[in-house]
């Protein structure tokens, strides 16, 4: 991997993804704000699309989380997750409700697992694998919180097989898309090659 740490993290050296100058300070904050906006937009738009299967969401906003994680590190990704959660819940009208808590729990668990996977498993898997892990962690965390919140004596765990199966699909799709976005960003950072005279 070109950089052991991503730009913008505390204690980061000048290393950054190949071809990218270190991004920090105001420039980083501006980028994170754009990322958070994009994530919140994807979050809201996803819910406007008619869906025949209840509770099933592709989690397109997680593409942004993974991209930020790979480009700018775990802390920046956590900032984007927090902003996206608040913005998305605000626009969806679910701020501070049970759905917000469940989304937050899943998103934070997913972020934690993906950050650990990127930190310690860079040679083992690609963004697709990281996304699969994050998606599975999201499902398990949400079910755990739902069981705790609604005092069902563990009855909701019967949904685990369904959500695990779903996480395979959503995690795979978001991983492929995030991988493509990161590759495009890397391509865009390459210096332009002048045409031969």
């Amino acid at each position: 991997m070109a950089a052991d740490r991503r730009s913008g993290e505390p204690g980061t050296k000048s290393a950054a993804p190949a071809g990218q100058a270190p991004v920090h300070g105001t420039a980083l904050r501006a980028r994170l704000a754009l990322y958070a906006t994009a994530a919140a937009l994807l979050f809201v738009l996803e819910r406007l699309v008619p869906n025949p299967v209840p509770w099933v969401r592709l989690g397109l906003a997680n593409i942004v989380t993974l991209v930020v994680l790979l480009e700018h590190g775990a802390l920046s990704a956590l900032v984007v997750v927090g902003l996206r959660l608040v913005l998305g819940a605000f626009f969806a009208g679910t701020l501070l409700g049970p759905q917000f808590l469940l989304s937050g729990c899943g998103a934070v668990a997913s972020w934690g697992v993906m950050a650990a996977a990127v930190r310690w498993g860079e040679r083992l898997w690609s963004p697709i694998g990281v996304s699969l892990l994050g998606s599975a962690a999201h499902a398990v965390a949400q079910l755990a919180l739902a069981n705790a919140l609604f005092a069902t004596a563990g009855a909701l765990w019967v949904l685990l097989p369904f959500f695990l199966g779903l996480s395979i699909v959503t995690g795979g799709v978001t991983g492929v898309l995030a991988s493509a976005v990161v590759a495009r960003l890397a391509l865009a950072r390459r210096p332009a090659v002048e045409a031969a005279p």
């Binding site: 790979l70 480009e71 860079e122 898997w125 963004p127 097989p161 395979i168």
Partner: peptide
């Protein structure tokens, strides 16, 4: 990792583990 787009052996292993986890968790 940032430029690696193709699934790795680790990805496939993860995928296999998750697929196996579905019937196991159902049981």
């Amino acid at each position: 990792m940032a430029t690696r787009r193709r699934p790795t052996a680790g990805d496939l292993l993860l995928l296999a583990l998750l697929i196996a986890a579905v019937p196991l968790s159902r049981r």
